[in-house]
Design a binder for these strands. Structure first.
Length: 467
RNA sequence: GCUCCCUUCGUCUAGUGGCCUAGGACAUCGCCCUCUCACGGCGAAGACACGGAUUCGACUUCCGUAGGGAGCACCA
């Protein structure tokens, strides 16, 4: 199973690339790379009503951001209509498909009746018999149905689920070509997977029930059946299907929130899959260790909290240079510009373990880059009161007098001021200073901040705080 | 309604008949570190859905029940 592995991710452009889709894409991607196979991107856009260019672009953008490069495609089903018709024709000639003249209204009535009677709303096969099968000259509108074999069982061995058995009687004659001449999903997916020589169909388990139908199509068309792997779904925090509120948003939104693509990949991979006790994986490790057999069966819930933690772990591995480059856009979003890369590196480094996302990091580091301190009113009221200002004044004078601006000198000045002022706890001098310099009560170590900001900024900010 | 699938701490998971007094991670709580907040360290709490059967022995096998999910479209 090396080298000739061919898998595909086949989204339909009727929505964004969301967490669930991205995870499916990822497992296909990892499987392909692990086996040095081929990863194909196919766009399932036969439903022209609901497919849009915007969604297509969104999907492509998401794939790109996550770094799941594909080897072939994107292929568009809409451009392959002739291929599907050819196969439908083949089935028709072989007597394995037939024209159906039932109207949607008629079918709807029957479906409701069956459902009301407590049964399964299967097609009753009204047009199945008779000699009208090949009479294409018939003027009445018609679609094409697959003549589903009704005897025996369909079985297959799912890589994730094991043996799945279905009674053929449960399956009805599905429509494979619509009245308007466009093919439906179950037909296109089979024809495409065959013509694209897909060896492993890895998809969400919402397709588990479709698989027996598709297998019958493979059989009727005389094609070899690929291997299947049905992945458990990802649910929202209410254990229900993913919806807009919890995770069905575009993955690109996570980029905006300051998540690293490699962290996203890492977290997504751990949803339904694991490798011992390991939590943090590089992309390379993911490719090395990924194994479809280790994929679980039960659905999982997307937990933004853990995803954020994984992100913080990857953030910690970034070099200072990468950190600056990756945080820049978020600083820009705050209207801040990085002018001095070295200064930015020190500034961001000092805050890096406090920010779990790039966006957060930019926000808490913003004070380094602003010309004017933005005050947190509560902090100002508490620490920059008359007492605070009184304490800060001698400190400012000591700082002014320093000829060398390094941690050692600064500490000495600070300690001297503290002693002269008779302040017992360092806190009582550190917090007013911190507030004066950063505008808040939370920041990296005060001496670190002092050194990074530099004498000029410190004196300026202290001066303003004392007004 | 019918058919199929799923079920270990709140969440992600380890566990493939004795290694389980059920392990790890996130989150939570406590303590330590400490100039704030984090990081880090230590610790606590917290789960095998339920009922039968098989077995010397079941988280692990089988059968039911309950709960959840999916499919039953001229959607994919």
């Amino acid at each position: 199973m090396t080298n000739n592995v061919r898998v595909r991710f086949a989204p339909s452009p009727t929505g964004h690339l969301h967490i669930g889709g991205a995870r499916t894409a990822l497992f296909n991607y990892l499987f392909a790379r692990h086996h040095r196979g081929t990863f194909i991107l196919r766009i399932e856009d036969t439903d022209q009503e609901r497919s849009t260019k915007e969604f297509l672009e969104s999907i492509l953008k998401g794939m790109e951001w996550l770094g799941m490069e594909w080897d072939e495609g994107p292929f568009h089903q809409f451009e392959r209509l002739a291929v599907y018709r050819e196969h439908v024709e083949k089935l028709l000639k072989a007597g394995k498909a037939y024209r159906c003249y039932c109207t949607p209204e008629e079918l709807e009535v029957k479906r409701k009746a069956l459902l009301a009677a407590g049964g399964k709303p299967k097609y009753d096969g009204k047009c199945r018999t008779g000699d009208r099968g090949l009479r294409t000259t018939e003027r009445k509108p018609s679609c094409i149905r697959f003549k589903t074999p009704q005897e025996g069982l369909v079985e297959f061995n799912d890589i994730c689920r094991g043996r799945i058995v279905t009674d053929r009687k449960e399956l009805d004659d599905m429509i494979i070509l619509r009245t308007d001449g466009t093919p439906t999903y179950n037909l296109t997916v089979v024809v495409d997977d065959v013509t694209m020589k897909i060896t492993h169909v890895i998809r969400g388990d919402d397709h588990l029930n479709n698989t027996p139908r598709q297998i019958q199509l493979y059989e009727a068309l005389g094609f070899a059946v690929p291997q299947f792997a049905h992945l458990p779904m990802i649910h929202g925090s209410d254990k229900k299907k993913l919806s807009k509120r919890h995770g069905a948003v575009s993955v690109v939104e996570y980029q905006e929130q300051g998540f690293l693509p490699e962290a996203m990949l890492n977290y997504l991979a751990r949803l339904g899959w694991s490798s011992g006790d390991q939590e943090i994986f590089t992309k390379k490790e993911l490719i090395e260790k990924f194994d479809l057999n280790a994929v679980g069966k039960s659905p999982s819930i997307f937990d933004i909290g853990k995803c954020t933690w994984v992100n913080s772990q990857h953030l910690a591995k970034l070099s200072e240079r990468e950190l600056v480059e990756k945080t820049k856009p978020y600083l820009k979003g705050l209207g801040l510009k990085v002018e001095d890369a070295e200064y930015a590196a020190k500034a961001l480094h000092s805050e890096r373990e406090r920010g779990k996302t790039l966006k957060e990091l930019a926000e808490i580091s913003a004070f380094y880059f602003r010309d004017e301190v933005v005050w947190d009113e509560k902090a100002k009221a508490k620490w920059l009161d008359e007492k605070g200002k009184k304490h800060l004044k001698p400190l400012l004078e000591k700082f002014q007098a320093l000829s060398r601006w390094n941690e050692e000198e600064i500490k000495q000045s600070f300690a001297a001021a503290q002693q002269e002022l008779g302040i017992q706890k360092m806190l009582d001098l550190a917090q007013p200073l911190r507030t004066a310099l950063t505008g808040t009560t939370v920041s990296p170590g005060i001496f670190e901040v002092l050194v990074i900001l530099g004498k000029e900024r410190v004196l300026k900010r202290l001066g303003k705080a004392l007004v």
